[in-house]
Simulated scan of single mutants.
Amino acid sequence: MRKLLPLLFFLTSFISYSQDLLTLKDGTDIESKILEVLLHDVKYKKFNNLNGPTFTIPKSSILIIRYENGTKDIFDIPISQTVLAEPLPKPPTSSELYQMGATDAYSNYRAGNSGRGATFFTSLISPIIGLIPAIACSSNSPRDGNLNFPNSELKKNPSYYSGYKHKATRIKKGQIWKNWGIALGINVTAITLLVKGQY
């Protein structure tokens, strides 16, 4: 009889591991053959009917799967212990928001007249007198109503707003001084032609 005990133990362990065992969260055990473990579901056949239908059960209902080879998968792991497949995107830093604001201003801000016309026409009469509107207009930042923000939510962020307004101010100044330079060039050309015409 003692010689038969190791053999019985071996046969018992072989039989107990010859199928997979699904344990559900409600305590139900299902002797099965696991076919596929998918992202949200598990496909299996009942062990006592391997030629029968394929069943699908959501992973959320499963506590543990014990496989015939002795390994197991546990599905009731708290979310704090799980590793996410993709990390959540980090929110942009202040410097990134500032740069985003500057980029958006370059694409969306339109200076309109913003003193360019007054600078140009005054500078045509006299480039020196034209310096007055050029300096006055370029020393002021554009008004918020003229900034043409593409995103009203981002506008509320101080870093984004600062980057956008700084770039818009530079664009406005650049256009005003460009008009002053064009008027100066026209004046110099006109004076040069007049001087040449006299000789």
Rank of each mutant, 00 (worst) to 15 (best):
I182F: 07
G130V: 01
P78E: 13
K25M: 02
F14S: 11
I64W: 03
I132W: 00
N146I: 00
G181F: 15
Y17E: 05
E96D: 10
L147Q: 04
I57D: 09
L21P: 03
L24P: 03
L8V: 09
S80N: 06
K25P: 00
M100Q: 15
K173C: 10
T103I: 11
L38F: 02
Y98M: 08
T71E: 14
D76V: 13
G145Q: 04
G115N: 02
G117S: 12
D29Y: 13
A168T: 04
S138M: 04
P127E: 01
N151H: 06
I128K: 01
K165D: 06
A102K: 10
K45M: 09
P91S: 15
Y161H: 15
S13T: 14
G70V: 06
G101V: 01
G27E: 06
F55M: 12
L154T: 03
N69A: 08
S159G: 02
K46E: 15
I65T: 07
L22W: 05
I30Q: 09
K155G: 01
E86Q: 14
Y199E: 09
R116A: 11
R66C: 10
T122C: 04
R110T: 04
K45G: 04
G52Q: 09
N108Y: 13
T169E: 09
S107A: 12
P158N: 10
T192Q: 09
Y109V: 01
Q198N: 02
L39H: 07
S95F: 10
A183D: 06
R170M: 15
S13Q: 11
P133R: 00
S16K: 08
D26N: 15
K165R: 15
K72D: 14
K178V: 03
L97N: 06
S139D: 00
L24V: 09
F14Q: 10
P133N: 00
G112C: 03
I62A: 03
F9I: 14
R116D: 04
L124I: 11
S152T: 12
V42W: 04
